[in-house]
Amino acid sequence: MVTAKPQPAPAASSSSYAAPPPRNRFGENLPKGILPRLPPVDPRPRPIRDFISTRLYKLVLATLYLVYSVYLKLRWTYHTALNRGFSILYYHHRTPQLIQQDVMEVKANGKLPKHLSVILEYEKGGLDTLIDEVAEITCWCASAGIKHLSVYEQTGVLKSYISTSHRSIAQRLHSYFGKSRPTLRVHSPPSGSFNDMSDEEGSGAHVDIEVVFISEEDGRESLVDLTKTLCDMAQRGKIMSEDVSIELIDAEVKENVIPEPELLILFSPNITLKGYPPWQIRLTEIFHVEDNEAVGYQVFLRALHSFGKTEFRFGR
């Protein structure tokens, strides 16, 4: 069914089992009915032939890799030029009105994600760049009307600079929005949150944008911790193992880490999740731009556009 080789007739095969043919060149015997799964009886070593064919394959492989590398270089050049063009065409000039205008199309035709997530990398430019990027993205989200932003960074360095980042983001928001800037809340899952102290008093007050920092320990490790807790409870007789259900785990994970993001933006040239929380990413739309390495507004905008167009098709 799979190969183009002729299928042996059943009658012929039974007769050939009784008397195997004397010479066993693979192709010649096929019509007579030796099944392809039988090993050829002729495993005569052919060192020279093998050597030459290996050399040939290696040569072909080297050529392939070379050609492919050239293609990659060309593609990279093309995409970089394209991305430059896009980032000139679409620039926000730090004005929320412009961003709103860009997002209007998406809002009109489709939908906006309520919970956006981004993966950022620490190693590229150090802590200052990282916080700067977070501040920029927060401002774009605030302008577009996205209320939840979770920032994934593998090492978790952001978590120890929550107050610093809160200050930088607040400053950046100020430079975007002026006096009436949106209220902000920055926190990370295990530790407490850092609210806006300035205008709102109670923590239950209205928050315009919420930023959550997550790291690798909120991924697989959080599920390991949950398992430990459940085991402990089971050993104490508080729950039965049958009580462990998808709903239970989902509720725990949502409460202790983050809820499911609707859109995940990667600013890396290819998609690797780098240890992103596995439970939450089930239905998340993952977006990246080929050969892009910068945290740019055009990537953000293209991600929103691509999210708006997709029809929700899961299961049904």
């Binding site: 599920l223 398992t227 459940l230 089971a234 462990v244 259900s245 998808i246």
Partner: peptide, 12 residues
């Protein structure tokens, strides 16, 4: 999710 839940249940 079913797989992860099954794994956790087995461990419990």
């Amino acid at each position: 999710r079913d797989e992860i839940t099954t794994a956790i249940r087995e461990i419990v």
